[in-house]
Design a protein around this nucleic acid. Structure first.
Lengths: 141, 141
DNA sequence: TTATAAAATTGGATTTATTCTAAAAATGGA
DNA sequence: TCCATTTTTAGAATAAATCCAATTTTATAA
């Protein structure tokens, strides 16, 4: 499911989007591409810190802001108290388990959704957040 | 569009949901029912403070938690940095304008939405968040 | 390769939404 | 009214995110 990207490919994508491919940005983007965990900034920081001992939280926040700005990473506001990040490109919905907190992807057909009351609105992005209990936690952990 | 509720009706609804109808809870619920602003806790606090000079922020948070628990108020995670609250009952989507920040309701038919990848998941709630620019701001404020 | 200007990173302080805590006040039942 | 329970209060504590000035890195040109 998850596609592995080479550093060179990542550099090219960032450059083509007008983002300078700094080391930190590459590592943050790479980590997001290789995980399906929809991590928070803190989780990304803790993960990369093991490899980059001088890393600071501000750098992670800066890198994420640049990636979101370049529209290669999407911000998820599914959590009450912190933001999560997702580099998966095709549009998809997110389900969060209220027991374990994990966020899962699911597919949906946006075209099939009929809406009323948005006449005259410019809709730039659509997020679908479901919540409930995942199969793992239904079986008791 | 917005239905006006009497204090007595609000008391009955809360009691029927197992929430003791304290003064603060009634006032918070009433305010949410009478506005279409999807306010944050701080906005509710500032609004009610004009009428209840001894009000504290913690009381607003406590009341909101009780109302959400009783499922008469819904939490919106549409904003990056703060939670917003909505007492409108029938299921609907939310659109936030990235210019003025206002949150608008819109109708949609959830039944028509085809999803894949949620087999075995217990879906308890569905939130649809759209973002973009509202007609007012498109015309230049 | 070296010099230079611009951009990115760093660490710590700051801000802000939310939660926690312990005391005071209010509530509902006997 | 009295008592036990719940709610409210004010301020302290927490935690995510931002800001800031100094340092380091990067990209480009000499």
């Amino acid at each position: 499911m998850l596609v592995v990207w080479s550093v060179q490919e990542i550099r090219e994508v960032l450059k083509s989007r007008g983002v300078r491919p700094s080391y930190i940005r590459i590592r943050v983007f790479q980590y997001l591409l290789e995980t399906d965990k929809h991590p928070s900034a803190e989780e990304i920081y803790q993960e990369l810190l093991q490899d980059i001992p001088t890393l600071s939280r501000a750098s992670v926040y800066n890198a994420l802001a640049a990636l979101v700005d370049a529209q290669v990473v999407r911000v998820l506001t599914i959590e009450k108290n912190e933001l999560r990040y997702d580099a998966t490109l095709p549009e998809h919905g997110h389900f969060q388990c209220e027991v374990c907190g994990q966020v899962y992807d699911f597919q949906f057909d946006l075209e099939s959704l009929r809406c009323e009351g948005l006449e005259g609105f410019w809709v730039k992005s659509k997020d679908l957040y479901f919540r409930g209990i995942c199969p793992k936690c239904m079986k008791g952990g």
